[in-house]
Write a protein that binds this DNA or RNA. Structure first.
Ligand SMILES: [Mn+2]
Ligand SMILES: [Mn+2]
Ligand SMILES: [Zn+2]
Ligand SMILES: [Zn+2]
Lengths: 144, 144
DNA sequence: TGCCTTATCGAAAATGGTTTTCAATAACTA
DNA sequence: TAGTTATTGAAAACCATTTTCGATAAGGCA
């Protein structure tokens, strides 16, 4: 099963380009970690990312933390709080929001955004976050 | 400056009632901690809650953690992720969302919710979270 | 009111996720 | 290919949160 909602090849080359612009090297370890992030639709903990990447390449947990930090900082990943845990998901850099399965941590993106016309009074908004929590199709069947 | 958006007296008695129903005692420590939460409009870290309560009553940090856990579990407080930190805010138990100042951590509630009519496809939604980040009125002036 | 049961408190220790350190290594450039 | 320098990862440090457990106090009841 391939990850949905994103154009993975496009995203991958965008990330490579950005890394290059920032003078970052494209190491085997980063390649392996990024491959994991590109082929999952779940939001992962750093530990999970580390374990998954381990299957194809020897990577350190520290390196998993580092790539998460970098990707999040430059806007290619987002943190999501699910069941009290911080998890990370590769994201397309366009504006979108998330449907989050609280059972398997699958994250589906959706683009509709209803927040534009709202009245915020004297508050000056700069960004926002919308998360729909629930059960994905698979998890509805599994645990009816 | 008193906390906005909530009817603090009403909220306080609701919490007392709920605590009583659960067989929880209303100790001096909880009184002091709750007083802090009721009189601030900021989302606090456990450490900040502890320090603020300390001014009127001797409280342990552990107790601050415990009341946050309890209030969150029974729906009278919510966790918000601000600048990478988990912060907690007393909340009215009615459905609402948040405008969050990323500078002073002030949280204003708003009730409008545009998410009802959306099409979630095969995803089964159970709850959602909407957060508007930005600058409150004070912080706009202060750091122009 | 005073007693008794038991929830609660908090200091200290344990836990565990995340960050820092630093010497060895590998990626890019010329 | 050689040289420069970003990157790696094991180990240590860090620090927020949880657990432990003996002492304390809340609150129901006689
Ligand atoms: Mn996304
Ligand atoms: Mn609220
Ligand atoms: Zn699921
Ligand atoms: Zn502010």
């Amino acid at each position: 099963m391939t990850a949905s909602n994103r154009d993975d090849e496009k995203l991958k080359s965008e990330i490579r380009l950005r890394f290059h612009q920032l003078g970052q090297r494209f190491t085997q370890e980063r390649e392996a970690l990024l491959a994991v992030l590109l082929t999952t639709d779940r939001a992962l903990t750093p530990q999970e990312l580390y374990e998954a990447a381990q299957k194809s390449e020897t990577v350190g947990l520290t390196t998993a933390y580092r790539i998460i930090e970098t990707l999040t900082r430059i806007g290619f990943a987002q943190v999501i709080l699910i069941n009290g845990e911080l998890r990370y998901r590769l994201c397309s850099p366009t504006h979108h929001h998330h449907m989050v399965c609280t059972q398997c941590q699958k994250v589906e993106e959706f683009a509709e955004c209803q927040l534009e016309g709202l009245d915020y009074g004297s508050f000056h908004p700069t960004s926002h976050r919308v998360e729909i929590f629930g059960l994905c199709e698979q998890c509805q069947k599994g645990s009816s």
